[in-house]
């Protein structure tokens, strides 16, 4: 078990998401940075869909009540286990009573704490992810609080410390600036409702991520991008990654806890391979949109898969060497 000693923002339990209930209006939820969640689980030899703790704000402190291997991936954090510093994207080992202290986040927006065997909360509608809107899944369908006890799978034998190259390094975009995330998007249904000037404004602006941004969606601030004439649409199906343009001309990117339908015009959609980059973009940071063809979006997906495949292959090699010795 893990006891929460200190929690700052809305930390929650997330796996990859809830994918079979969309047609009933149940959103996917799931880790905002699915690449980091998979990587943490790969490091521990877990099922890649095993549930972990998504931590959006520091400090965050937990105590382990048993010997257990854990991994920290996602944002770059300053963390210590029993007083020893842990580098980013790292697998370590806690002894019963040890305290993990995640003190600060130097870049990125969400850290993932995965444990050997995964966080063992009940499956609800096919997933362990917390669904904030519906208040189910995860631990009692709500953000974690001080004193919460997270059930873990069985304790594990001691396992060596090991790190992996963060996805942000392997999959770095060539023209990315320090505080600006470039996000590749495909134009969406109502793109043509905007004239060339409005479209240019959408592409050329550096959008600020406002404090009204969270797991539901990111509200961006910049010059108003308005359609040629008001677009009135009935509510229709939308997915995480869709960029809506409400009447005030300030875009909203739907994220993992998004509703399954909406009526605002859609100007573009973030490609699947870049959704984790948005999930790691900080409040107050900047986003810039880069138009991408469907084929390039698939190529980006392949590139992301190749990174995860290499991780899996490298980890298998480590396990084989261990058994050979």
């Amino acid at each position: 078990m893990i006891e929460i000693l200190s929690v700052t923002g809305p930390a929650s339990i997330q796996d990859l998401g809830r994918f079979d209930q969309y047609r009933f209006g149940v959103g996917t939820s799931g880790a905002m940075d699915d690449v980091a969640l998979r990587a943490g689980n790969i490091l521990l030899g877990n099922d890649e869909n095993a549930a972990a703790v998504e931590i959006p704000m520091m400090p965050f402190r937990v105590r382990f009540d048993r010997n257990i291997a854990f991994a920290l991936t996602g944002a770059a954090v300053a963390a210590e286990i029993a007083g020893r510093a842990i580098p980013p994207w790292w697998r370590s080992y806690a002894r019963a009573g040890d305290i993990l202290n995640i003190k600060a986040m130097s870049h990125g927006a969400r850290s993932y704490l995965a444990v050997s065997g995964g966080i063992d909360v009940p499956m609800v509608l096919g997933s362990r992810s917390t669904q904030f809107r519906g208040e189910f899944g995860g631990l009692h369908g709500r953000p974690l609080r001080v004193g919460d006890i997270l059930p873990c799978a069985a304790s594990t034998a001691a396992i060596g410390e090991l790190g992996i190259e963060p996805a942000g390094i392997t999959l770095a975009r060539p023209n990315a600036a320090a505080d600006e995330t470039i996000v590749r998007v495909i134009v969406a249904g109502e793109y043509d409702a905007f004239d060339a000037t409005a479209q240019d404004l959408f592409w050329s602006s550096s959008w600020t991520i406002t404090p009204q941004s969270n797991r539901y969606g990111y509200r961006l601030q910049g010059p108003a991008v308005k359609p040629k004439e008001p677009v009135e649409k009935r509510s229709h199906g939308i997915v995480p990654g869709v960029i809506q343009m409400p009447p005030n001309g300030q875009p909203i990117i739907q994220m993992r806890d998004a509703q399954t339908s909406g009526g605002y015009p859609k100007i573009a959609t973030v490609i699947g391979a870049d959704l984790w980059r948005v999930g790691q973009a900080r409040l107050g940071g900047k986003l810039r949109f880069e138009q991408t063809a469907y084929s390039d979006a698939l190529a980006a997906e392949d590139e992301m898969s190749a990174y995860l495949d290499r991780l899996r292959a490298n980890m298998r090699l480590v396990e084989e060497t261990r058994t050979c010795r």
Binding site: P87, L162, G163, I164
Partner: peptide, 17 residues
């Protein structure tokens, strides 16, 4: 047992202790 550095092999970082 302090970490002194890393050895990078492919995508893995092995600690030097």
């Amino acid at each position: 047992g302090a970490m002194l550095g890393l050895v990078k092999i492919g995508l893995l970082y092995a600690p030097v202790v």
